[in-house]
Write a protein that binds this DNA or RNA. Structure first.
Length: 720
DNA sequence: GTAGGGTTAG
């Protein structure tokens, strides 16, 4: 304020042109001068309030507001807006309701943010009564107010459809709200979403003028509600109305093609975005990454990510989630690390996206590190994060930690229930799993497709065929879930393990969808365990019909023939495998020691400590034999001398990993190892002996479950 | 006044 005029006239000038104030300190200086020079009229005080609220200075504006005995509209409008801009939506609508209670009418500039606040606090009834007020005041023809109404009804529509019971009501006619009443009772009318949809449409149709925001709002509302065709139709109509899709439109459309897994259409949108220079837009960038990732085109996601001129936390999270969902766990972890280096702070979403990588790779040390981060950041009460932690601990062999986290959770959704049920199932705790399933139903949480896979897995590892049938029928009849491949596979596995091979064969043959190679191979491996060569040949025939390239099947058949001493047939299988030029992924086992992963394959001599490992194994073998261990060479699929067979067993990858674990960790430490295929019968016996001799708890994760070995016994009770 | 990413299985 360096003008030559007197402070008093200067203050008066500034109050008339508040937009000339550029900084917060200028606003405060004006306030100081005002106090010295002006009489405190409500209208000039209101102007000062509005100046403060333009800078979002909530406390200063409230201080002035409270000094007024009967604040005029401008004062109400300013603080209401300031509350909304500060995210305090409940305060915002409370002030609005108070103002209305005093008989003061809002203007067209006030209504949009009150409606927005109303959408945020999910108060449908209040929104409707404000709509009534808008109509009475004749403000429904205002473009901005109309757009805000569209947005509000679209948001309510989402709530009704997705949650079913999340919309809060408050009836203004009931009088003034007390305390939290504005966010109070639940509306549970069925079919309300249709009504909301009508409301969006009605407002839209009634609008005398619509701009691109109006179109985008309705399109986004439809898209977020799963009404994809309606959204796409509106995009076309928008063109007919001479309205050009902008970056907002595209970011509603891209997730639709991601959901449809329609990469061609997605690419068309990408092209449009490039031509209109939207491709460097952050929102479009992450939608594109997500779309390509959903269409299994993760390389294209990476390309988009790399070309982004700038990246925000969401672009990082999108690419990380994309990698993890496409099985690129190392790349996902690497990107997570790069994100930290780029000083982008991870958020709840970052953790729930990256955690499955730790779960899959069994990297408990990483999972624990992330868990520490989660606790320090206060993300542990997020249901997504907590569920991913439950899953990670269970998959890394620590079911106790998984259960502890689950029990600590304030509320459980279907996914968290399913994660803990699956956790117990994989650890062979069938009864815990089934009990939890019952509890989940009693809690009123409806099981979905995946929950039933978890239930069948639980039954499978405990041989509970009757329970499984019960749940299978309940799933189809009471829950209306059509059995999918995973359910059939789990049931076939269950029947096969239980030795009900013929029943399994009938079951697979009567499936209402065509059985895949992997379902037949489930039964084939059961035939191997139960040594049923005749059925195995029948199953193999079916299998090769649908999946002639199935590597596992050739190996399985070869092993089945070998076990029956039919070496020629076994060799034939190996030869066909070679002819086809397909190679089986080698069996391997890995173990984490001192935050490093060590991988072993059968007969592996590449480890720097291999001499000590072999010596330890030899010592162990001697003690095992003294305790009564007899090697079971019946499953060695090579036609070699008995001594050679014993050596092959002796150097199986899980034993090497185990011996390495024993020599490189302190006495008494629990050893956790992970195997990419099922642990063999002889190794299972051997590990039981090893757990007793070394006095260690040994937890083995193979490709289908966990085995907890302790004192010479295994948690699977030899049923797996 | 309009917009984006996540957890269970495979």
């Amino acid at each position: 304020m360096t003008s030559s005029s007197t402070p008093k006239t200067l203050v008066q000038t500034l109050l008339k042109t508040p937009q000339s104030l550029k900084t917060k300190s200028q606003a405060k200086e004006l306030h100081a001068q005002f106090l010295k020079t002006q009489p405190h009229s409500p209208s000039s005080t209101s102007i000062l309030i509005s100046i403060y609220t333009n800078f979002n200075l909530l406390h200063d504006s409230l201080f002035l507001f409270n000094s007024l005995s009967s604040p005029p509209l401008l004062a109400w409008k300013s603080v209401t807006k300031c509350f909304a801009n500060s995210g305090l939506f409940l305060n915002s609508v409370t002030y609005f309701v108070q103002m209305r209670g005093l008989g003061i009418y809002p203007d067209h500039k006030m209504l949009p943010f009150v409606l927005k606040a109303c959408a945020f606090i999910k108060n449908l009834r209040l929104g409707e009564s404000i709509h009534g007020c808008i109509i009475r005041l004749g403000l429904d023809f205002d473009l901005f107010t109309g757009n805000a109404l569209l947005n509000m009804y679209a948001k309510f529509q989402n709530l009704e459809v997705n949650g079913g019971h999340k919309v809060f009501t408050f009836n203004m006619l009931d009088g003034m709200p007390k305390g939290n009443e504005l966010c109070g009772r639940l509306a549970q009318k069925k079919g309300k979403n249709v009504f909301q949809l009508d409301s969006v449409r009605k407002v839209f149709d009634m609008m005398p003028k619509r701009d691109v925001v109006s179109w985008n709002t309705v399109i986004a509302g439809n898209a977020q509600n799963g009404m994809y065709e309606e959204a796409l139709t509106m995009v076309r109509e928008m063109g007919n109305a001479n309205m050009k899709p902008d970056s907002f439109t595209l970011s509603s459309v891209l997730p639709i093609f991601a959901e449809y897994v329609d990469v061609m259409k997605g690419k068309e949108i990408h092209g449009y975005a490039i031509r209109h220079r939207f491709d460097s837009d952050w929102y479009i960038g992450s939608s594109l990454i997500d779309m390509y990732a959903n269409c299994s085109r993760i390389e294209d996601s990476c390309r988009v990510f790399n070309l982004l001129p700038q990246r925000d936390d969401i672009s990082w999270n999108s690419i990380i989630a994309g990698c993890v969902q496409n099985g690129m766990f190392d790349k996902g972890l690497n990107l997570f690390h790069q994100m930290l280096i780029a000083k982008v702070k991870p958020r709840d979403v970052s953790f729930s996206s990256i955690m499955p990588a730790c779960a899959y790779l069994t990297t408990l040390h990483l999972g624990k590190q992330l868990h520490g981060y989660i606790i320090r950041g206060g993300f542990d009460d997020n249901v997504f994060v907590a569920s991913s932690l439950v899953d990670m601990y269970a998959k890394c062999g620590n079911i106790k930690a998984a259960r502890w986290i689950f029990d600590q959770m304030e509320y459980h959704d279907m996914v968290s229930w399913t994660a803990i049920i699956m956790g117990h199932a994989l650890h062979g705790h069938a009864h815990d799993a089934l009990f939890l399933f019952k509890q989940m139903e009693m809690d009123g949480v409806k099981p979905n497709y995946v929950s039933f896979i978890a239930v069948f897995t639980a039954c499978s590892h405990a041989g509970l065929t009757d329970e499984a049938w019960g749940h299978f029928n309940c799933m189809t009849q009471n829950h209306g879930i059509t059995p999918g491949l995973e359910h059939y596979a789990a049931m076939a596995d269950l029947l096969g393990r239980a030795g009900k091979l013929e029943e399994a064969y009938e079951f697979i043959s009567s499936m209402h969808i065509a059985p895949t190679g992997s379902i037949w191979s489930t039964l084939l491996s059961a035939c191997r365990v139960h040594k049923n060569l005749e059925l195995a040949e029948k199953v193999a025939k079916k299998l090769f019909e649908v999946d002639p390239e199935n590597v596992g099947a050739y190996v399985l058949m070869s092993n089945i023939y070998a076990a029956a001493q039919r070496w020629k047939d076994a060799a034939k299988m190996r030869i066909s495998l070679k002819k086809k030029g397909i190679r089986k992924e080698p069996a391997c086992t890995w173990i984490e020691v001192k935050n490093r992963v060590h991988t072993f394959i059968s007969g592996d001599k590449s480890h720097p400590l291999y001499e000590r490992i072999y010596k330890a194994l030899k010592d162990l073998l001697e003690q095992m034999e003294r305790e009564g261990y007899i090697p079971d060479t019946s499953e060695v699929s090579h036609d070699v001398e008995e001594e050679q067979k014993k050596y092959l067993l002796f150097s199986h990858s899980e034993r090497l990993a185990l011996a390495f674990g024993i020599i490189s960790t302190p006495t008494g430490t629990t050893i956790r190892i992970t195997k990419n295929i099922r642990v063999c019968v002889d190794c299972h016996t051997a590990i039981k002996f090893m757990s007793k001799i070394s006095q260690r708890e040994i937890i083995v994760r193979d490709n289908s479950r966990f085995h907890h070995f302790k004192d010479g016994k295994c948690s699977c009770k030899d049923y797996w």
